[in-house]
Each structure stands twice: as structure tokens, then as C-alpha cells.
């Protein structure tokens, strides 16, 4: 352990906020500032970016000399790996594959995020979700989704 206590969480938070402020500020540079009478599209975001940067800096500054009372803990790597791609996959394939296969695979991907899920159970769950959702949304509510898309050589 280092001699001086520091709040690692807040250091990370401060740095991240400053980075976000930097990003927005940098993007705002390309926008017209205008005058305070007729503000350009860049005026307000620039002011906010500055404010966010200051807030981030203060959080960073205050993190030194104080112990981290609630450290980071575990990170759900497996969750991140499977949960986050699920909606992305659905978005990429719902038009091409169609609603039914896209939803089936989306559910299957998401279910892999848990170590407790057995392969067979995941399959059963995905089938059940797909059948029910298709009945409710596609047949019941008539949402304009194609059930099977043009990518399938049916």
C-alpha cells in the first residue's frame, strides 16, 4: 500500500469525466460559437464542456488524501462479453435475417452471460421467448417486422 491514502475510484471518475469533457470540447471546436445574442451551435456545449472539465478536476483533486472506502470489486467480464453484444446483434440482423431468427439468436447470446445457464436450458428459453414474442408482437400487435428476412435461403 502507498503511504498516502487516495480514493482510486474517484481518481478514475475524475479522469474519465475530464476525458469526456475533452471529447465534447474538442468536438465543439468545429462548431460555430456565435454571440450571446444569437448563440451558435457550439456555444452551449462549449460552456458545458468547460464546466464538466472543472468538476472532473475537482473530483480528482479531492480524491487525494482520502481512503477509498468502497473499492472497485469484481468486474462482470462475462456479462459485458455477452450482454452488450445482444442488442447490437439484434439491430444488425433484424432486417436481414428477420424477426424470428434474430430474436432467437439474441436471446441465446444473452443467456450465455450467466455461468449457471446450461446449454439445453438456454435453447429451450430462446425457443420459448421467440415463439411468445412472435405471437405477441408480430401476430397479435401486427408490428411491421418481417418474420424471416431476405438473407435466409428459404
Amino acid at each position: 500500500m502507498s503511504t498516502k491514502p487516495k480514493d482510486d475510484t474517484d481518481i478514475a471518475a475524475g479522469l474519465l469525466l475530464m476525458a469526456a469533457a475533452g471529447f465534447f470540447g474538442w468536438q465543439s471546436l468545429g462548431l460555430e460559437m456565435g454571440t450571446s445574442i444569437r448563440m451558435g451551435p457550439g456555444y452551449f456545449p462549449m460552456v458545458l464542456s468547460g464546466l464538466l472539465f472543472i468538476l472532473g478536476a475537482v473530483i480528482l483533486f479531492k480524491a487525494f488524501g482520502r481512503p477509498d472506502d468502497e473499492p472497485f470489486g469484481r468486474i462482470a467480464w462475462r456479462g459485458i462479453l455477452f450482454i452488450l453484444p445482444a442488442p447490437i446483434f439484434f439491430g444488425l440482423t433484424v432486417r436481414g435475417l428477420g424477426f424470428v431468427p434474430a430474436l432467437f439468436i439474441t436471446t441465446l447470446i444473452a443467456s450465455q452471460a450467466s455461468v449457471r445457464m446450461r446449454p439445453l436450458a438456454a435453447l429451450v428459453l430462446a425457443v420459448a421467448v421467440t415463439v411468445l414474442a412472435t405471437l405477441v408482437f408480430s401476430y397479435g400487435l401486427g408490428l411491421p417486422f418481417r418474420r424471416f428476412g431476405p438473407w435466409l435461403p428459404l
Binding site: 442488442p87 436471446t107 443467456s111 450467466s114 414474442a133 408482437f137
Partner: peptide, 20 residues
């Protein structure tokens, strides 16, 4: 309902909901 059953359902539903 066990959580590992619940969250794939949640992910499926919110994908549909957001897309719709």
C-alpha cells in the same frame, strides 16, 4: 424466477421495445 432465466428475457424484450 431465477435471475439467469430472467435477464435473457429482459434483453430480448428491450431489444424489441427499443427497435419498435
Amino acid at each position: 424466477v431465477p435471475y439467469y432465466v430472467l435477464f435473457p428475457i429482459i434483453m430480448a424484450m428491450c431489444s424489441i421495445g427499443v427497435y419498435s
